[in-house]
Write a protein that binds this DNA or RNA. Structure first.
Lengths: 141, 141
DNA sequence: CCAAAACATTTAGCCCGCTAAATATATCAT
DNA sequence: ATGATATATTTAGCGGGCTAAATGTTTTGG
């Protein structure tokens, strides 16, 4: 296997993720969100009242990152931070009504961007892609 | 096509790129580089003396981003910024000897990370992957 | 020739993500 | 019961990337 081919895969991944990130960010600004915040909210739409540490694990990022994201989302009225009554160290994060309302428009934007990305790529190819990506993901951990 | 499958592709891409970025960043710290700076240097290894605008185009990022990266790389002694004599608006970027010396160790780290990512993925699969990724890349632009 | 438009870069200020260190609370072991 | 340790979060400060606005230089059109 040529090094150039490896490079092309690496570079393609880089470019795709960077471009997607920019596009999502631009797109989410209409909802007063920044890229990354949608993933945090997405976890809360499944079930809220979880701790910041649980968000860290889900988002695979560090505690200070969650602190900042949560602060911004709270200031914009999408979530509430409530100190746990039994364990005073813990903050539990709840969705506000405004935060719940974002689920539909965010999912719609996800779907739209996914279709743009996967345009002209067949169902079979999508399955192959999914498999390969998941194997690559495992390789990294 | 199920929305869930699209989501899995999107999420896998997200996770892979985020993890790769973190790993590269950690790895490059040994060379006193930050992730992203390797790509800028990589363009210069091909040929230096190019302008910041040309770096913008190559890196597909905005002028202020290049300003900051270039400032940091200059402070660390890897590049030189020289004002163009014919067009006083333009800064031309040159590699220092230290900057040139980074090519080998950076390429070695790229190769290492690529092999980690593509571990257990056959040559045929790599070709398929490359093709699919390049089609996806085109879709975004 | 000179004012207006175009262009390259910089500055200021965000957010994401990080690390190191600080803070606050809870638990554990003596 | 209390000092040490563990855990959750925050603060400070950095770099990548962005936008909006400022600066400085060049080009252009009347």
């Amino acid at each position: 296997m040529e090094i150039s081919l490896d490079c092309e895969i690496r570079m393609s991944l880089d470019k795709i993720s960077a471009k997607m990130r920019r596009d999502y960010n631009e797109n989410l600004r209409e909802l007063n969100l920044y890229v990354g915040q949608d993933n945090l909210l997405s976890r809360l739409w499944t079930s809220d009242g979880i701790t910041q540490m649980q968000l860290c694990e889900h988002l695979k990022c560090e505690p200070p990152t969650v602190t900042n994201m949560v602060k911004s989302l709270e200031q914009n009225g999408f979530i509430l931070r409530v100190r746990d009554k039994k364990d005073g160290r813990v903050m539990r994060i709840y969705l506000t009504d405004e935060g719940k309302k974002l689920e539909k428009p965010v999912r719609s934007r996800w779907k739209q961007q996914q279709e743009k990305l996967l345009n002209s790529i067949s169902d079979e190819e999508r399955l192959i892609m999914k498999d390969l990506l998941q194997r690559m993901e495992k390789n990294l951990y």
